[in-house]
Amino acid sequence: MTENYLEIHKVKKSFTDFTLNDITFSLPKGYIMGLVGSNGAGKTTTIKLILNMLEKDQGKIDIFGYDSVENEKEIKQHIGVVSDKNFFVDSWTVKEIEKAISVFYDEWDHKIFQEMLQKFGLTDHIKIGNFSRGMQIKLMLACAFSHNAKLLILDEPTSGLDAAARSEFLEILQDYIKDGEKSVLFSTHITTDLEQVADYITYIERGELIFTGSMDELLQKYVVIKGAVNEITDELKNNILGIRQTNVGFEGLIGAEIGRKYKNKYILDNPTIDEIIIHINKEGR
C-alpha cells in the first residue's frame, strides 16, 4: 500500500448550477484530514465522487494506490463511512444490521463488533429508528471498525451532537488512528473539532480548492488584522480578504507575509479556521 491512502488529482464535476473544479489533494496514511468549506462549497460532492456515488467528468481518484472505479469492490473492503444521517433501515435492529452487511466484508469480525457495541453502550435488539443521533453515529463507527477499515470517511458526523458527545467522538477518532495505519477524511462545519484532531486541512469554497496542506500551514498562512475605522487605507483594502467594517473598527484576513508590514500599525491575531472560512467566503461574494 502507498504512503497516501487517498489521492485526488484534478477532479472536476459539473452540474447545471455548480461546478467542482480541479480539486487536488492527498491524505497520507496515519493522519486525519479535515475537509472544510461553507454550505454548498462542494464537500459532500467530493465525498460522493470518492465513493463513486457520482461519476466524475475529469480527473483521477486513487485509494490505497488503486483506481477508485476499477477497484471499487476491493477498495471498499477497507473503507468505513459515517454520515450525517443514519443510512440503515429504521426498522432494523443492530443484530439485523450485522446479518445484512457482514456478508459483504471478507474481514468482518463478529467479536470486534460485539466489543464495540458494548464499548459504545448499544443494545442489539432495539430498532435503529429509536436510537439517538449519538448512538446512530456510534453504530456506524462500530460497523466501520468491525471490518478493519483503514480509511474512514466522515461526512458531517458531529452535526446534531452535543459538546460531550462530540468530545467523545473525537477521542474515538484519535484512538482509531494511533497505530499509524489508518486515516480519516473528516468533512465538517464544526471547525473547532478539527482544531483538536486534524493534521491536514483541505478547504473548498464554491467548488474551487482554496487550500490543501497541514493545519499549521493554513493557520500560519493568514493573520486577522484589526484596527480603527479611520486607520484603513486603500492599499490595505486591496490586500484584505473579506473586510468587515463597523462604526468602531474593521477586521479582515490578510496574508501573513503582507500582514507583517502592518504589525506596528494594526492589531494582528492568529486566525481560527472559522475566521479564515468566514473572511474568504465573504471576499468571494
Binding site: 460522493k48 465513493l51 463513486n52 456515488m53 471499487e72 469492490k73 476491493e74 477498495i75 471498499k76 473492503q77 473503507i79 468505513g80 463511512v81 454520515s83 444521517k85 443514519n86 443510512f87 440503515f88 433501515v89 429504521d90 452487511i101 459483504f104 466484508y105
Partner: peptide
C-alpha cells in the same frame, strides 16, 4: 420506497460492491 425513505444510497455506497451489483 423503503430505499428512498431511509436514504439507503449512502449504505450502498459504503458497501464493497458496484452499481451493477
Amino acid at each position: 420506497s423503503i430505499q428512498e425513505k431511509n436514504e439507503l444510497e449512502e449504505l450502498y455506497a459504503s458497501l464493497p460492491f458496484n452499481l451493477k451489483s
